[in-house]
């Protein structure tokens, strides 16, 4: 197996030159020893991860492995108990989603966070509407419409009518609107939490094209998905998250779906065996 295996303690030294990027350039995003617990549940136990400029990093792992928690820490939704986040080499602390946005990190949430009753252009500016003076803070509708068309063009998406309510859009179109909102302000890092979930084959392929288009333009992204076929198609590198740590860091080119699947199965067997041993020990 050519992929290099990472011990559970997280012994990779991101940014020291031995990482997958290899050539000593500072990654755009580096996460060191991130831990997070919710009450008695330990979600993350010292995660190390790095995202290089122009790279698409895929996070795979079982439900409850900690993928979403990690993404929600990077985007400022949760605050980590310990660990550090570096953006372009500088350490950052995000107090809120807005804070992370200011630093150039934006997220496409799994639920998309769109308002179905509002037109597309309002959704693209939700929470960051353009207004002009006065106590009422009236909306600059014209500017928002014009810019919305440009944002959709920027990610090469064509939607017939910018005034259409999101309710009237298909699942794929909604996803595209959510992506356009996240990418509209020149983000440094884009986080996509299950962008292909609950989507038909035809729509999935449209979103895959969209993500590939962004990647071709050098957008650094972290993608969560369960489908290995999609992940191998989209990503440059994969990190497997297991029980709150990154257990495997591999370039997609260095592995295969079969290899990864058998790795996952062996890891799962190991867990089951350990669990049995613990049980039998407890029984003694």
């Amino acid at each position: 197996m050519s992929a290099h295996e990472v011990p559970a303690e997280g012994a990779t030294q991101p940014g020291d030159g031995s990482g997958p990027s290899g050539n000593g350039t500072e990654p755009i995003l580096r996460v060191e020893g991130i831990s997070k617990r919710f009450g008695a549940v330990v979600a993350l136990r010292g995660v190390d991860l790095q995202l290089n400029a122009g790279e698409v990093l895929g996070l795979v792992g079982d439900n409850g492995a900690g993928k979403s928690t990690l993404v929600k820490i990077i985007c400022g939704f949760h605050q980590p108990d310990s660990g550090r986040i570096f953006l372009e080499g500088r350490q950052v602390h995000f107090r809120s989603v807005e804070d992370a946005r200011h630093h150039g990190i934006d997220t496409v949430y799994q639920d998309l966070a769109l308002v179905p009753q509002l037109p597309i252009y309002y959704n693209l500016f939700l929470g960051r509407e353009l207004t002009f003076g006065g106590p009422l803070r009236l909306l600059s509708q014209h500017r928002m419409r014009r810019l919305s068309e440009r944002y959709l063009d920027d990610i090469q998406v064509s939607i017939p009518d910018i005034n259409a309510e999101v309710e009237t859009l298909s699942g794929g179109q909604r996803q595209a609107v959510a992506v356009a909102r996240a990418t509209r302000s020149q983000v440094k890092v884009l986080l996509l939490d299950e962008p292909l979930a609950a989507m038909g084959a035809k729509e999935s392929s449209l979103i895959i094209d969209l993500i590939k288009g962004l990647a071709a333009r050098g957008q650094a992204m972290i993608v969560i998905d369960h489908n290995y076929t999609h992940m191998f198609e989209l990503c440059d590198r994969l990190n497997i998250i297991e029980q709150g740590v990154v257990s495997l860091d591999t370039k997609v080119a260095d592995t295969s779906i079969e290899e990864l699947t058998s790795y996952m199965v062996s890891q799962y067997r190991k867990q089951v065996t350990t669990g049995r041993e613990e049980l039998s020990e407890a029984g003694r």
């Binding site: 966070a113 939700l126 509407e129």
Partner: peptide, 20 residues
């Protein structure tokens, strides 16, 4: 702006909060 936030709060409470 307030009006759009009223619609957003009534239309998708969680999503509106996620969007800020």
């Amino acid at each position: 702006r307030f009006g759009i936030h009223v619609v957003a709060s009534g239309g998708n409470l969680v999503g509106a909060a996620e969007a800020g």
